[in-house]
């Protein structure tokens, strides 16, 4: 459970999961922010108004998944690094996971990486498809990784396999 060890439980995660149908329709945001904290940049970041207005700054973000097109702009705007985008329609076997990444070195396109779940356990591998690090992102890169669909809702971080990592 989040409050005991920082890892969200199944129940906690259902709160932030789009419907099965929506997940099958293409890229969509997953906002794993399940505590009332004084924070709201995600709301202002989305150009499509997919975040419902906050009743006050401590509200938890709530999303209109039909407005979200998975553009990933909000990922780098969340100081909690709690925003991800998943796409179950990426290919037959693979889904695409987009994560915020603030470590160095950055992975490279085409690189095979280890995927980690929410407890930091290695759960498989993935292939880096894109690394976005524009000035606007202010040093929070967005890494897109193709992973087997079975782990698309589990994988939330990556580890590079390079020498000395």
């Amino acid at each position: 459970m989040l409050k005991n060890n920082g890892v969200p439980s199944r129940e906690e995660l259902t709160e932030v999961k789009p419907s099965r149908e929506r997940l099958q329709q293409g890229p969509v945001v997953i906002v794993e922010c399940i505590q009332e904290i004084p924070c709201d940049p995600c709301y202002y970041a989305c150009p499509r108004g997919a975040f419902y207005p906050f009743s006050d700054i401590n509200s938890k973000p709530e999303i209109d998944y039909d407005k979200c097109n998975g553009c990933s702009i909000c990922i780098a705007n969340c100081p909690g690094l709690a925003v991800f985008v998943v796409d179950f329609t990426y290919s037959e076997e693979e889904g695409l996971l987009q994560i915020p990444y603030e470590l160095t070195p950055l992975p490279e396109k085409g690189e095979e990486v280890v995927t980690l779940n929410r407890s930091g356990e290695e759960i498989g591998t993935g292939r880096v498809v894109k690394v976005l690090n524009t000035k606007k992102q202010d040093r929070t890169a967005i890494v897109s990784v193709a992973v087997p669909k079975e782990i698309l809702m589990e994988a939330r971080h990556i580890k590079l396999r390079r020498e000395g990592q």
């Binding site: 470590l103 160095t104 070195p105 950055l106 040093r139």
Partner: peptide
């Protein structure tokens, strides 16, 4: 030891 590479600084 000096920190050589840093993602932010």
């Amino acid at each position: 030891m000096r920190i050589k590479n840093h993602p932010i600084i």
